[in-house]
Design a protein around this nucleic acid. Structure first.
Lengths: 93, 93
DNA sequence: AGCATATGCAAGCTTCTACTTGCATGTCAA
DNA sequence: TTGACATGCAAGTAGAAGCTTGCATATGCT
């Protein structure tokens, strides 16, 4: 799971995760417009597409094809390994 | 806290955190020998020193000077932000 | 003081990463 | 089928990151 850390290293990819966390299941074009609008990120479509590939390879997002649309869904499962690796105490304690 | 993600991106730095998690408060030289022995990492002293600087800048380790020795301590506090950012569910649930 | 130990600083090099650019593929509607 | 829409692929480029190399500073022991 070394790819997870690498995927999280880029600010642009964390912004994409933020976007999907706020509104799950977006297409590439939706992400392009919303990232430009809300997060003040001027990223080209190809740049975002490549970031999505990295995030999917890391298991942080899953995709679903439907015709010419491809929807992207956030998956925070791989982040659990980070928490457990160095025994991060819970905020409740 | 963008530095935290960048600090975690390098496998060598994660190995250093692993070492400090197993045995806290090591000096630079201790880390050099133990990383070479146990983790099969052939890293120079300068390389490890630079990694420690990055980890300290990210707040993942703290240091204490005593004479010519400098001890390094693990601090998992900044990792909590990762958990809370995308609402990673607890393993208990 | 003199020497070994422990760490710090900085320039140079190589590799990788993120982004761009240009074109290709596939889907749907008229 | 034609054209617009949505995405995919791949080469090229500028910048950053990690590591090395060489020397410098500082502490402790004899």
């Amino acid at each position: 799971m070394s790819d997870v850390f690498h995927a999280l290293a880029a600010p642009a990819r964390r912004a994409i995760l933020d976007e999907l966390h706020e509104r799950d299941g977006q297409t590439l074009y939706e992400l392009c417009t919303r990232l430009t609008m809300k997060h003040d990120l001027e990223m080209s479509r190809q740049a975002i597409s490549q970031h999505l590939d990295v995030l999917e390879a890391a298991g942080l997002i899953t995709t679903r094809r439907d015709g010419r649309y491809k929807f992207h869904y956030l998956d925070t499962g791989p982040l659990r390994a980070i928490v457990e690796r160095w025994r991060v105490p819970d905020p409740e304690e």
